[in-house]
């Protein structure tokens, strides 16, 4: 590892700047965040009644992402106290209810294994191993242009600049073996005590290497609903104790589908001549997630089910939801690229 990577500055994020609205609901949320909440309830209810597909709805996914951001790094110029505003929480709950129903409707949950750690791990490895659709990682490795690599980072930045944070909300909801496993994984995600090695900070280096802005929300206006829905699904699972099983299943599936694709992503950047500084993030995940997936399958998901067998179905649902929602986001990018189009709502400046 070159010394320059060990002695660089620490990434300090600031509250996210407010994006442009994408319709009446996100507009009303933006108004409410700035102190004008009169039209919020009606606007959200109307958008929920009118949408044909909440999973791809630009307006509703942005509205929900903004409401969730109050629980993460906050929003620039917005009163932090609004995190617990009953009216904003009620609006969030109404969007969440329909989002959860929509996810449950599209997800294919695998057959139930025995509620033992070994059987749960085996079932999760089988589920995540059969993911055989068109591969974004292979495209990035072999074909992606420099512009597409930059788009890829912009798409990923929505989650990755807060990498690991959604699942960390689950820590106090777990006990025993599952809790120790989640903390073991998250400690590694957060750099094992070294701020320069926090995964989101390593990702920021990749963004900088490609001339991109690494501030949270810098490119939010460009990123489509399908990608916002992927993060919103994680926030939904992470922020509800009721869904702690889904939160655990989601993280397990995420870790179990990471090390092999990250090798491919790194290869795509190497193909364009980028050095270790730019590919560190991907190289790190090849090694880290080969560790995490074993802990996540056996000790986290398996340990949770052994401790709370009633959560087995939710663990499987969360894992399947991860594959479905991240699969949709990946397929969207791949379809646009193979059609010769951008995957973003507007070009990267």
């Amino acid at each position: 590892m070159p010394a320059t990577l060990l002695h660089d500055d620490v990434l300090q994020q600031r509250p996210m700047p407010l994006p442009a609205p994408r319709g009446a609901a996100s507009g009303a949320v933006l108004d409410a965040l700035q102190g004008e909440a009169n039209g919020l309830d009606d606007a959200v209810d109307r958008a929920l009644a009118d949408t044909a597909d909440i999973l791809g709805d630009e307006d509703l996914q942005l509205a929900l992402l903004l409401l969730y951001e109050l629980h993460y790094g906050g929003l620039a110029g917005v009163d932090d106290g609004l995190e617990w505003s009953p009216q904003l929480l009620a609006a969030r709950a109404r969007i969440e209810r329909d989002l959860e129903a929509a996810i449950r409707a599209v997800v294919r949950v695998p057959e139930r294994p025995e509620p033992t750690a070994a059987a749960v791990a085996e079932a999760l490895f089988a589920l995540t191993g059969e993911d055989s659709g068109p591969s974004l990682s292979r495209y990035v490795a072999r074909k992606a242009t420099l512009e597409q690599l930059r788009e890829f980072l912009v798409q990923r930045s929505i989650y990755t600049l807060k990498e690991a944070d959604p699942h960390s909300f689950g820590i106090p909801r777990l006990t025993g073996r599952a809790k120790a496993a989640l903390v073991e994984i998250q400690s590694d995600e957060y750099g094992g005590g070294r701020p320069g090695r926090i995964h989101s900070a390593i990702f920021a280096r990749t963004m900088r290497a490609l001339g991109l802005d690494d501030a949270v929300g810098a490119y939010l206006d460009l990123v489509p609903a399908v990608t916002l829905a992927s993060l919103n699904t994680m926030s939904l699972f992470g922020l509800h104790r009721r869904l702690r099983g889904a939160n655990v299943g989601h993280l397990a599936a995420f870790e179990m589908t990471s090390s092999l694709p990250n090798r491919q992503y790194g290869n795509g950047f190497r193909r364009h001549g980028f050095d270790e500084e730019a590919t560190w993030y991907f190289d790190e995940h090849v090694e880290a997630d080969a560790v995490h997936e074993q802990i996540a399958a056996r000790d986290l998901a398996g340990g949770l089910v052994e401790g709370e067998p009633a959560l087995l179905d939710d663990v499987l649902f969360g894992a399947a939801a991860c594959l479905e929602m991240d699969g949709r986001a990946g397929a969207w990018i791949l379809e646009r690229w193979t059609a010769g189009e951008s995957s973003l709502r507007a070009p990267v400046p």
Partner: peptide, 22 residues
């Protein structure tokens, strides 16, 4: 580089002695 490590057992990892999921 990390407290808990996974050592390759299949022989095909590209980052031996560590596991890469291969």
């Amino acid at each position: 580089r990390r407290r808990t490590v996974a050592l390759c057992r299949c022989g095909k990892s590209t980052i031996k002695p560590f596991c890469d999921g291969t």
